[in-house]
Design a protein around this nucleic acid. Structure first.
Lengths: 161, 161
DNA sequence: TCCGATTAGTTAATCTGCATAAAAATTCTG
DNA sequence: CAGAATTTTTATGCAGATTAACTAATCGGA
């Protein structure tokens, strides 16, 4: 029995899987949100399987890219950039650091915070990961032409910019 | 390590407290997967907040649409269509049934399985929900023109079809 | 017919990801 | 210097999802 009266239904970050493939139709294909979800799921899962070879998850890959692009940033900045809460940034960084991919460096002026940097190994790995991700992207969107990909990127940017 | 010649340029807390779209760049914007995820997140969260008024989540809305479009289907079919595991379909259906939106009807030839149907109330609500979802879609993609929306839908369909 | 294998659905235990809250350390301010 | 504010960390809890195990019903051959 579900005794879930749900007093606060609004704050719901990541929800369950919505769509799928199969013979069944939901007659929802004209909704951008529905199409977005299904396409995103496919591309995402593709990337997950590729990053699995490195025992990494997409969020960790993204974190590495953010750290490289903003070397020396603080954890709070990283959390904001990833749209996660600070405690999550801690566990994420712990993993990256325990693998020797990133390092926390105490800030001289403010000893509360750290500057975050990629290690040499992190830099090297990230370079590989970028190639892997780019290839995964191409594979997952093999049905599109190069122009269509650019078109799609442009449209998506308009939505979230 | 490396050159920290620029003394902590990360001191850029920024007033814009927007989650995923902050001042920080990940240099990942040319990846379709990255753009897809960010756009999907925005549109999805928009829909979540709209459906919150009905105490429903996107997966439940999708389930209603699938049930309507495939009246009499079995739970295993529903699970497959939603890309979820059977136990999850049970929870989902329990919720819908306890709200009087869907019904399980014992199959005559095979008393193990049920046929799933929308109730009258389910039909009525789904009609509303389709309008809500369509409006949410438009709101979340207000930056796009009508043509661009059609273009986008077409490109997305190519990815997941 | 009867017994084993299979299938549909359910239940329960567990895992995971994420959020909220509180704690610890440091800095800032008046 | 005392108190407020901040950066990070720890602790706790919750909702969603997966696996394994259980029940009930059907099927298939000896």
């Amino acid at each position: 029995m579900s005794r879930k009266s749900s007093p606060t239904p609004a704050a719901d970050p990541q929800a369950a899987a919505q769509p799928a493939d199969g013979p069944l139709d939901a007659s929802l294909d004209e909704l951008i949100g529905y199409a977005l979800r299904r396409a995103q799921l496919k591309v995402f899962q593709h990337l997950v399987s590729r990053l699995g070879a490195f025992d990494l998850r997409p969020a960790q890959f993204t974190a590495l890219a953010i750290i490289q692009q903003n070397a020396g940033l603080m954890q709070a900045d990283l959390a904001r950039a990833l749209a996660i809460e600070p405690p999550q940034a801690v566990v994420l960084l712990n993993k990256l650091e325990s693998r020797g991919l990133a390092v926390r460096v105490r800030c001289k002026p403010d000893k509360r915070s750290y500057g975050i940097f990629l290690s040499k190994a992190g830099e090297t790995l990230l370079k590989q990961l970028r190639e892997v991700a780019a290839q995964s992207d191409l594979d997952a969107t093999a049905a599109l032409s190069a122009e269509e990909r650019q078109q799609l990127i442009g449209l998506l940017h308009k939505i979230y910019r």
